[in-house]
């Protein structure tokens, strides 16, 4: 699994944060383990064979909280299937 958080809602916006989990067990990942994102933007991940299956919605701002900042806003989930030995 690959999750990219981008600078705006366009898939070609720059990556600002990222996470990876490897279900094959070949690689262990954890918080703070990298300094550079694996892809500069979401489109680069698509071009490298990742399948986008979810993107965060654009929601209206709840009255009274318009200037509040919170979780990273532009979240894109990708998957890639790998063969593993039986």
């Amino acid at each position: 699994m690959l999750v990219l958080w981008l600078a705006d809602s366009n898939l070609d916006a720059p990556t600002v944060a990222w996470s990876r989990w490897d279900g094959t067990g070949e690689r262990r990942t954890m918080a703070g383990d990298e300094t550079e994102p694996p892809y500069p933007d979401g489109l680069a991940a698509l071009r490298d064979g990742w399948r986008l299956f979810q993107a965060s919605s654009l929601l209206p701002h709840y009255p009274g909280t318009e200037t509040q900042t919170s979780y990273l806003k532009y979240e894109f989930w990708f998957e890639q299937l790998s063969e593993v030995p039986a």
């Binding site: 600002v16 944060a17 990222w18 996470s19 918080a31 703070g32 994102p37 919170s70 979780y71 990273l72």
Partner: peptide, 21 residues
């Protein structure tokens, strides 16, 4: 520091540009 979040709810993020060690 001014982001209003709930404690460990941000645990999904692994790496964020500008993070410091």
């Amino acid at each position: 520091h001014l982001r209003i979040v709930s404690e460990a709810a941000i645990g999904r993020y692994q790496n964020i540009k500008g993070q410091r060690h």
